[in-house]
Every structure is written in structure tokens, then in C-alpha cells.
Design a protein around this nucleic acid. Structure first.
Lengths: 345, 345
DNA sequence: CTTAGCACTCGGCCCGATGGAGTGCCAAGT
DNA sequence: ACTTGGCACTCCATCGGGCCGAGTGCTAAG
């Protein structure tokens, strides 16, 4: 799909894209000759016509300049962009944001979203880890009444989940303690998938069938670990989008904001790159949701010691300065990973 | 400040306000005579001129109709509006939204915000209770490592607070259990203010000075109960605002969205009516923040068995259908209160 | 006190003219 | 063969003028 371009075409395409990213205006042949390109406007026009033919450019109307298409952005990100890693001063600027914050994972992730958004001037997204992808560290039960128990579940990466559980039969404090000990002993360090599998397996075993307490333990923990609210996304800095000139189009803005309220939609986008390594860029139509037409995401995964936990990134109009944002997202993801590691020690 | 108006002036003012609420347009004398008012346009104009003199109306320009001022809305809400309570069908419609939801207070409040916003077509606000205003039910500690403890604090209204605490000295499991028992025994049922006062008092007492364990208990609990993130506001349905014609003004919209990101600002508005009973209406300038010029809030408090916990409501342009929204906010607050009561049994 | 009539005001809208930015193409230059 | 200057053309944005209509304020008559 992406045909090779001549050296010159590449240069011109790159110049157009970067100029357009900077100004948000259609770019004419003349403006290019004023910077970088050492050719006459006429020659540039020839190349531009060719690029338009190939689908990299389009003109809003006959006598306007040209604007990059999504295909152009894709090409730019894949082939033209050389992302440098962040310089030391930017890095310490980012780190500054995380200094004061304590150890609670929830707060950490919220701060990440906020920081991403304020550094990038776009909207920050952070996906809260799915229980599925975490590892068992500890479970604790607090008896609230004869039939109600608060389960506190702690993962190795320091995530804390509360869940209220109604129990069928009464459980004494002693029973509960036994169950707690048993679960903490058996499940410690296992991945949540394994834990679930184990629970199912053991429940089926003969031994368990006759041990009422075990039965209860399994039933209780199965309930606790049932996937909750299907994952959450922390969105911060939506107001930055309003500054973008493309959002002078009211209709478009409404669509995007509605998409933000459908968090599941963003979640599925963040999910998409969860297996991949490094930074992912999703451009315009690649999102496959019409509400986000003209928008792009830059995402990266963060991970604890034992594997990928979630994803974070920024979203904004496709005309975004990928070159500067990609390293920021990348570095942030790495940093969150490191901070979660420290916690889990 | 609000001078008495003649019967006729009131009727005309009311008609203008309601017409304007419905259409978002400036209202001319003629349109009024087509509905409700049985007078000639000329007579209406006389009254309108008078109302303008008094500051209830203004005209965007000479040859446009008139538009209610904030003073008019205030008068309308205070003197003209007769709010009926909600009819049964609306009530059950609201209740429907809360059926499926479990017992977790966090989820309940989020659902409240979402429901408010979707029923009112404005943005829903719910303030999460301050620890300050809750009552001690239970505290539990989970030892994560020698120096790190997870405190789980449960209030009588079913709110669950986690906090990670770094401890200076090592604490054995036994110590921790003793502390837990002591705290749960001593503090149960007390208001958080009292708890804090008590802790301070006892820390000063001689007895405690020589009992190392007690000292630790107090220090630990003081840290746990230190007011966290200054309270939170759950905002849902911002996209509804985009539908409002007044938000075609981009600048204005940006201001409001920026205000939303400053949650402390909304918090202080919700805080304001916390002592009052019933529904509060804050109109335009009364918010005392320039970002929210032209916006109004309708708020009400919700309470557990033992007193006010927090506030909830909706926010939108001052031109809002107060008559229909006030009962919804009112009923929602009552309902949340009832649901929290059930939980705390 | 109400109302019909009237002159007046002013924003919204349509219109046409103007200017400028940018294009495509062609023919001349290197 | 590629590059480039020149040129005609297109089309948008902007501006000013004229018209229309809604609405007002005032006055005088009922």
C-alpha cells in the first residue's frame, strides 16, 4: 500500500507535513520554497501534484494549498520520522511531576494522565490495569456484618481493589481467617488467570467437595475476582483539545466529546496495542470509530516486573507533533513501569 | 434588592423567562401576546420597559427582543416558581437507574452523576463525602511489608478508604492486631472530627506517653485519617453542554471546560450549600467565579442517618428549565440518602 | 389606562466587487 | 530531461451596500 517515494518527494512531503503541523494551514508551493526546499515553486508543484495523485495530499479547494492525508501521516510516522529519545532536561521535567506523589497506584495513574496532557497539550489517557493482567499478592477480608464481607485484594504491582461481597451462609471470624490464610498461602504470586483456573480446578476436586470451608473459600474468592467494571480509563485535559483550531468545527468537537464519555471505546483502542512493544500510533480512520475521525492517538504500554499491565497515551487531532510527543509518551510509560516496580518490592 | 412587582409585571416577566428558556431567543412583545398574555403588544412593551429599568431584562440591541438578566432568574426561582414534586412515573424512571447497581458507594455516586446528567441534559456533579463528615465504623490494617501497612477505613455510610502508610518502626502482626482492636473499640460510631480530637487528646495524656503501643496506634491512625486529596467531584455528561446554543460561543465554552478541570472550584460551590436544607440554586455571578459566568447550578445535599454527607446537582447555562430540574435534583438527593442509609444498617 | 399607528433603529442576509493566494500548464532555459 | 519563469485561471475570504423584518419608543386617540 505504501509505495516507495523518490528522495525529493519524501523531502517535500515531510516539509509539507511539518509545516502543516506547525501552522494548521494548507501549504502552498511558495511557502515551501521559503524554507528548506531549494527548488522553484513550479517544480514543487509538480511533485505535489504527483503526491496528490498517490493519495498523500489533498487540497481543500482549487486555489488553496495542500493538506496531508491520513496516509501521509502514516507514511510520516513509519518512514520519515526519526524519534530521538528525550533530552535530560525534559526528562527531569517529567520526573518532577511524580516526585511528591505517594504510593497509591490510583493516584499515580491519574497524575500520569494529567502530566501527559499538560506536557503534550493534548488529552491524556491512562488505562487502569485489568485485574486479568495482575498478579496475586494478598487478599484480606473484613467482616462488616454476618452476611457482608469487604474483600481487599492487593496485586503485586500495588493495585488495591475493594469489593463488597454478600455471602449466603454466615461465616465466623475464625472461618474467615482460615480462608484468608489458605488463599494467601496458595495463590501468592500467581497470575490472576492462573488463580481463577486454580479455583475452578480445585472446586471440582473431590477433596474440596467434602471440605465445606474450602468450598466457601473458593466461592468467595471467585466472586471477588470476577472482573469488575470492565476496566477504566482516566481522561485528563480535555480542555486542551478546545484550543486546537480543528475543533472550531462544533460538530466535530461534539462527536469527540461524546466518544470520551463512552470510555469503553477508548479502552478498546488502548487495548489494541497491549501485546505490542514500544509506542503505537493510531491515525484517524485506523481507530475505526467515526466519532474519532480526524483524531490520532499515541499510546505505549506500561508494565510491572511480571509483564504488561496497561497502556497510556494522548489523543488529539491527527495534525499533532508526533516527533515531540512520541518520546514523551514513551518515557512516561517507562517511568510508570519503573515506579510500579519499586512499589512491588 | 428585589422590589415587589405588580401582578401584571410578574406575569409578563414569568412569560418572558419561560419563553426564553424554551427558545433561547430574545423575546419580543408580539410573541408574548400570542401566548398567555391578553394585552396588546404596546401595553406589554410598557411593562417591559419598566422591567428593563429595574434590571430584570436587557436587550441585546435596540431592535431585538428582551432577554432575562440574572436578577430575573433569581426572582423567578425565589418568587415565581412553584416546584411540584416529581410524579410517580418520573420517580420510577429515576429509580430504574439505580436498580442494578451494587453496594459500593463510589459506584453509586458515579451512577448518580451520570443519571442526573442524562435526565437533565446538563452536566451532573456529585461531591464525594469528605472524610470529615463521616462516622467511624471500622478500621483494618494489612501488613504489606515490615514498614508498609495498608489501612482500610470504613465509614458508617459504607465509604471505603484505602491508604498506604509508611511506618517508622517495625510493627509485628500482633502489635497491629492490638492496635486494630483498640481503635475499633474506642472509636466506633464517633464522628471523624471527634476521632481526631480524641486522638490528639489521648496522645497528650500521661498514660499514653508510657505505652509505646498506644503511641503507635495514635500516630498511625492520625496519619490514616489525615484528610486526603481534599475531596473529589464526579463530573459526568459534559458533552450535554455542547448541545446548548449558548455554547456556540467558543470562548465561553473553553472557560467552562477549564473550570471543570479545576475541580476544587466546583467543590467549593457544592460546599457552599452544605449546611442548608433542600435545593439550592446558584445563578451566574453568584458563583463568584468568572469562568462560570452565565452558568447556574442546582444543588442539593445528601445525607446518611447521621447528618449531611455531601452535595450533588447539575450545572449548565443560566437559561435552564429550573421548574423541571429542581425536582429531579431534589429527588435524586433524597434517594441517594436513602440508599446510603440502607447500606449502613 | 389601553391601544393603534408610525417613525425609527439595527442586526441579519444577500449580493457583487475586489484582492490575493495558489494552481496547472506551457514554453523557454540549462 | 529536468527545471523554471510566466501566465491565465480558479476560488475563497473580505468588505461594503442595500434590503428586509422584527422590534422598539413615542404619541395621540379611544
Amino acid at each position: 500500500m505504501l509505495e516507495p517515494l523518490s528522495e525529493r518527494s519524501q523531502q517535500i512531503l515531510e516539509a509539507i507535513i511539518e509545516e502543516h503541523i506547525a501552522t494548521a494551514q494548507p501549504i502552498g508551493s511558495r511557502t515551501l520554497t521559503r524554507s528548506a526546499i531549494r527548488l522553484s515553486p513550479a517544480s514543487v508543484r509538480n511533485v505535489m501534484a504527483e503526491l496528490e495523485e498517490l493519495g498523500y495530499l489533498r487540497s481543500p479547494h482549487t486555489s488553496a494549498g495542500r493538506v496531508p492525508t491520513e496516509k501521509a501521516y502514516r507514511y510520516y510516522v513509519d518512514s520519515l520520522l526519526r524519534v530521538s529519545s528525550l533530552d535530560a532536561s525534559s526528562r527531569s521535567l517529567i520526573e518532577l511531576h511524580y516526585q511528591r506523589h505517594g504510593l497509591q497506584m490510583g493516584e499515580l495513574l491519574r497524575e500520569a494522565s494529567r502530566t501527559l496532557s499538560s506536557l503534550c497539550h493534548y488529552t491524556g489517557l491512562v488505562m487502569v490495569p485489568r485485574l486479568q493482567s495482575t498478579f496475586f499478592r494478598r487478599i484480606e477480608f473484613v467482616r462488616l456484618s454476618a452476611r457482608q464481607v469487604l474483600a481487599v485484594f492487593i496485586t503485586q504491582s500495588g493495585m488495591i481493589q475493594n469489593r463488597l461481597v454478600e455471602i449466603g451462609e454466615e461465616l465466623s471470624a475464625g472461618d474467615l481467617e482460615q480462608i484468608t490464610n489458605y488463599l494467601n498461602h496458595t495463590m501468592s504470586g500467581l497470575g490472576l488467570r492462573e488463580v481463577k483456573a486454580r479455583i475452578l480446578a480445585e472446586m471440582a476436586q473431590e477433596k474440596a467437595l467434602y471440605d465445606q470451608l474450602l468450598q466457601r473459600a473458593f466461592r468467595l474468592s471467585a466472586e471477588v475476582l470476577a472482573e469488575a467494571g470492565a476496566g477504566e480509563v482516566i481522561i485528563e485535559g480535555t480542555s486542551h483539545l478546545l484550543e486546537q483550531p480543528e475543533f472550531n468545527d462544533l460538530e466535530r468537537m461534539k462527536r469527540v466529546f461524546r466518544a470520551f464519555e463512552q470510555k469503553s471505546l477508548l479502552l478498546s483502542l488502548l487495548d489494541r496495542g497491549l501485546q505490542a512493544k514500544g509506542v503505537q500510533v493510531i491515525i484517524g480512520g485506523e481507530t475505526e470509530c467515526p466519532e474519532l475521525a480526524g483524531c490520532s492517538l499515541i499510546t505505549a504500554n506500561y508494565a510491572g516486573r511480571r509483564g504488561t499491565l496497561g497502556a497510556l497515551g494522548v489523543i488529539g487531532p491527527s495534525r499533532m507533533p508526533y516527533a515531540t510527543l512520541i518520546p514523551i509518551v514513551d518515557y512516561t510509560a517507562g517511568m510508570i513501569s519503573r515506579m510500579l516496580d519499586e512499589e512491588s518490592e
